[in-house]
């Protein structure tokens, strides 16, 4: 009897996390691992940008010999310790590649977003602009991204030249021109995909919402801006996150136009040392860290902007 009452109490607890310790532990673990990873990454980047505050740029924080010594003291761990001793020599360089990957992804998705919103609105509401947007989307979704990058980098010589002549490009932590050409490619390509996610979301907003906006006296543009988009962009978050996660990984195609991003560096060290497994596993772990960070951030954005009842018919 008293047991039943206790169960009922637990079921009535307002916050599910307080009654589900497993989930709470997993969440804590994610934050701890994330804090360690990003603490290390930021320390690394800071050290190298500032010309070596802690260790000279490119040198590991912990010397490889330390790991090798651990392996000798604890024989069971010698395999792992040797792998680490090898990998830490290359990690500083991989981390610099990771910086390039982050720049490629964040700048491209951010600048691609307004273009995607415009494309989506044109596709949903435009007549001639709708056809133009459709042409854009089909062109950039329908041809290989790699081909687009080649055309931009090798086919349009003025584009890399334009970026090379900008004063800050290639200085300090601002990457060189190939990265910016790649970013142009990713903006165009990603906008096509993002735009389709957003268009789907716009089309799922009840048409009565637009009509109500018009009936209040808002223009078509005003109704889209103040009524449809605030709802559609909320609906679009999960699909948009998917595109963000893809972009993190397909940003590695920039390697083909000489951009020294994460996978490019792993590949080049691997071909020097023939230790493919160790290097690609490390690169994979860094990608995984980026992806989990991105999806966690978007998850919290989604929760933060959530509106009671929006997304169900009850919301109208």
């Amino acid at each position: 009897m008293s047991e039943g009452a206790a169960d009922a109490d637990a079921g009535a607890a307002p916050d599910a996390r307080t009654v589900d310790p497993g989930r709470s532990h997993a969440g804590t673990l994610k934050y701890v691992v994330g804090a360690i990873l990003w603490g290390w990454v930021l320390l690394r980047w800071g050290n190298d940008w500032l010309g070596g505050v802690i260790v000279p740029p490119g040198q590991p924080f912990v010397p490889p010999a330390t790991f090798a010594a651990v392996g000798e003291v604890v024989p069971v761990l010698s395999g792992v310790a040797n792998g680490l001793a090898f990998a830490v020599q290359y990690l500083p360089n991989l981390m610099n590649g990771m910086w390039v990957t982050v720049i490629l992804t964040v700048v491209s998705i951010t600048l691609g977003f307004p273009l995607a919103v415009a494309l989506a609105a044109a596709r949903s509401y435009g007549h001639y602009t709708g056809w133009l947007a459709l042409g854009f989307v089909e062109l950039f979704r329908g041809t290989p991204l790699l081909a687009q990058l080649f055309v931009l980098y090798y086919g349009l010589p003025w584009l890399p030249a334009f970026f090379r002549n900008l004063p800050f490009v290639g200085q300090g932590f601002v990457p060189a021109q190939a990265v910016w050409v790649a970013i142009v490619g990713f903006i165009l390509n990603s906008a096509a995909y993002q735009g389709e996610y957003i268009r789907g979301a716009i089309d799922s907003v009840d048409p009565g919402q637009l009509e109500a906006g018009r009936a209040v006296g808002l223009s078509q543009f005003g109704s889209i801006r103040y009524v449809v988009l605030p709802q559609a962009l909320r609906y679009a978050i999960p699909g948009w996150t998917n595109e963000l996660v893809y972009l993190i990984k397909y940003s590695s195609l920039a390697a083909f136009i000489t951009v020294p991003e994460l996978l490019y560096r792993a590949q080049s060290f691997a071909s020097e040392t023939y230790r493919y497994t160790a290097l690609f596993v490390f690169a994979g772990v860094l990608y995984l860290g980026l992806v989990i960070t991105a999806s966690s951030l978007m998850g919290s954005v989604e929760a933060r902007v959530a509106i009671p009842g929006l997304g169900s018919d009850e919301g109208r």
Binding site: D206, G208, Q209, A212, A215, V227, P230, R234, I307, R316
Partner: peptide
């Protein structure tokens, strides 16, 4: 000219 709709059409957000 104001309008009141059958299915309300309140701005859901």
């Amino acid at each position: 000219v104001g309008m009141v709709f059958q299915d309300f059409n309140l701005f859901a957000h």
